[in-house]
Every structure is written in C-alpha cells, then in structure tokens.
Simulated scan of single mutants.
Amino acid sequence: MHTTGLELFWFILIGVLWAGYFFLEGFDFGVGMLLTLIGRDDLERRAVINTIGATWDGNEVWVIVAGGATFAAFPLWYARMFSAFYLALFILLVALIIRGVAFEYRGKRQSATWRRNWDIVITVGSLVPALLWGVAFGDLIKGIPITANGIFTGSLLSLLQPYALVAGLATLSLFLLHGALFLNLKTTGALKERASALAGRIAPITAVIILAFLAWTWEVARTEHHAGDVPGMIPVSALLLVVAASWLNRERLSGWAFTVTGVAILAITATVFMTLYPDVITSSLSSAASLTIAEAASQPYTLRAMTIVAAIFTPFVLLYQGWSYYIFRRRVSLPHETVPASDQPHEV
C-alpha cells in the first residue's frame, strides 16, 4: 500500500513527540537515577529533586500525547504494540506511577528511613523506564514474533533480545549523562561539582554504548528487511555530540554541554524512526507480517481532522511549557550557599 502525505506527516509528528519526551523526560529520569549519588544527605537530595520538581509531571504529558496520537492516527499500530508489549508496558507503567507517588510522599513525614526508602523508589522508578523505552523501540526495529493477523507468539523474555538490550542501555546511559549535565546546569556549589565530575565519568561509557547501538542499527537497516534509508550524517552526528558534551563539560560550558546531549537525543530518535520507516512494527517471523504505516493508518478524514486540531492547539502547549521553564529557570542551591543576586535559587 502507498503511504499518503497525511500518513507520513503523522508518523513524523509522532516521532517528534517521542523526541520531545526523551529530551525533556530524559533528564528527569537521569536526575532520579542520580538522586542518591549526587545528594549525600536529605537536604541535598531535596535540592536535587527541586531541580525538576516544577516540571517533571508536565514533561510526562509528551508521552501521553504520543500515545494518544498513535491511537488516533495509527490504531492498528497501537493495538498490536500494546498487545505484544502488554507485560513490559505494565511494568513500565507501574514504575512511572510509583515514581510519581514517591515525589509526592517523600516529604509527608520527617522520618529519615521513610525519606530514604522513597528516594530508592524514585531511583528505581526512573531507571526502569529509561531502560525499557529503549528496549521497546529496539524490538520494534529488530522485529518481534508477531503474525500477519497481529498475534504475538513470544513472551517477555523474547523481547529481551541482544539488540533491544543494547538499545535499552543506550537510552539508560544517555539519560544518565543528560541528567548529570542538567544538574550541573541547575545547581551550585558541591552539588554542581559532583554532577560535573559524574558527567565526566559517565560520558565515555555512554559514547561506547551509543557507538555500539548506532553501528548495530546501521547494520540492521542495511542487511535486514527494512526499506528505511537513514542518512549517515544523523547517527554520526549523534555520536559526535555525545563526545562533544564530555569536552564541553570539562571546559565548564554547562549550558552547551546539556544542549548538545539534548540534540544527540533528538538525532538518535530520528535514527530510530527513519530506520523503522516504512514499518511501524517489524515481524521477526516474516517480512510480509510486518505492519506498515499505510496498513496501520486511520481513514483520511480522521487524519485531516486531527491535523486541524493539532495545528490550532500545539502552539499554545509549546508556549505554555516554554513559559514554565522560563519561570523556573534559576539554579537551586543549599540554604548555606551564596549565589549572585541575578541567579537566586528556589527555596529548598
């Protein structure tokens, strides 16, 4: 079946939504995973949480919109993906729920044990999605045992194939680096120094994992049953940006370091979607059983109506989120630290 302009537009838009989610929620996950490493006592951990306290739940809206857009624009993709990944997505959803609960409940009691336990929940609730999102997209590219009529014949273990695990480690390590650089950008004093030092240690490991993932992805796109054509400059640029982030961090250019890891996330997401195209789910049983964009798409009328709604409301959403980041742009510091008047922190 031939892919129409509207179907391609919505496939690209869904890719943009996932890229935005990984860019924004990526540093949230990184901050959560680094919580107990950067913060050495309750006061410091409260400061670390405060760096994302005003924005983390807003960042999660991106994945809700991405899921809703997939359901409306490509209902067959949505149905088959959730059927195949049912247990994995359930685990991921539980992790996201307990993470949100932990943010709200850790301050309800003064007990050190109570808060320490919730801090562990935040760490685990951030680590699991950071890993599983990469595994899920790796499975979509490499292929899962699904028949032509959409029946998933595998198990949870069959989703943990080597390529998918490397993809999961790639997102995990990249989000860790992104989060460390965000903390370097948003904190002061000892917290900032620890975040910078940790980013310097994470960056080389991340670069090696990203190299392995991109090289394997290139090989999958070249040799297996994918018609996707990924320009070589995109994955190469993603790797170079990760390397550049390490140098920028050493030069104490924290804003630029954080920016280039964000652009690397966008480039890697683009690589994933361009490799997947024109499929939305790849079958490991037979290339004929793979689900294409055209086969999964809604009717043209639905896509036209969705396009009009998206064109009207998307600018307002982007403006609001940009405004919220502007309002909470200042660094977070501990009460005993002094910072310039132009960069006063939020209260901890």
Rank of each mutant, 00 (worst) to 15 (best):
I64V: 03
I64H: 05
I64C: 01
I64Q: 06
I64T: 06
I64R: 01
I64G: 02
I64D: 07
I64A: 07
V65R: 00
V65M: 04
A66M: 04
A66V: 00
A66F: 03
A66T: 01
A66E: 02
A66L: 04
G67P: 09
G67Y: 03
G67K: 01
G68P: 00
G68Q: 03
G68F: 07
G68R: 03
A69W: 05
A69S: 03
T70L: 13
T70I: 08
T70P: 00
T70H: 03
T70K: 00
T70C: 07
F71W: 05
F71D: 03
F71Y: 02
F71M: 06
A72W: 00
A72K: 01
A73E: 07
A73Q: 05
A73P: 04
A73M: 00
A73S: 05
A73W: 02
F74A: 03
F74H: 04
F74I: 03
F74S: 00
F74R: 07
F74T: 03
F74M: 05
F74G: 06
P75I: 01
P75A: 02
P75E: 00
P75H: 06
P75S: 06
L76N: 08
L76A: 11
L76C: 07
L76W: 04
L76T: 05
L76G: 08
L76R: 07
W77A: 10
W77P: 08
Y78S: 07
Y78K: 00
Y78G: 04
Y78C: 00
A79Q: 02
A79G: 11
A79N: 08
A79V: 03
A79P: 02
A79M: 02
A79F: 05
R80Y: 04
R80G: 00
R80D: 08
R80F: 05
M81D: 08
M81P: 01
M81I: 08
M81A: 14
M81G: 15
M81Y: 12
F82S: 08
F82N: 09
F82I: 08
F82L: 09
S83C: 07
S83D: 10
S83Y: 14
S83P: 10
S83N: 12
A84W: 08
A84G: 10
A84Q: 11
A84I: 10
A84D: 11
A84S: 11
A84M: 08
A84C: 09
A84H: 13
F85N: 05
F85H: 03
F85D: 08
F85R: 05
F85K: 00
F85W: 06
F85G: 00
Y86K: 13
Y86I: 14
Y86E: 08
L87W: 13
L87C: 10
L87G: 11
L87V: 15
L87Y: 15
L87Q: 14
L87N: 14
A88I: 12
A88V: 14
A88E: 12
A88T: 11
A88N: 10
L89Y: 09
L89Q: 11
L89H: 12
F90D: 11
F90V: 15
F90C: 13
F90L: 15
F90G: 15
I91V: 15
I91S: 14
L92C: 13
L93H: 04
L93D: 06
V94G: 13
V94C: 10
V94S: 13
V94E: 09
V94F: 10
A95F: 11
A95I: 11
A95W: 10
L96P: 12
L96R: 09
L96Q: 12
L96D: 12
L96T: 10
L96I: 15
L96H: 12
I97E: 13
I97G: 14
I97R: 12
I97Q: 13
I97F: 14
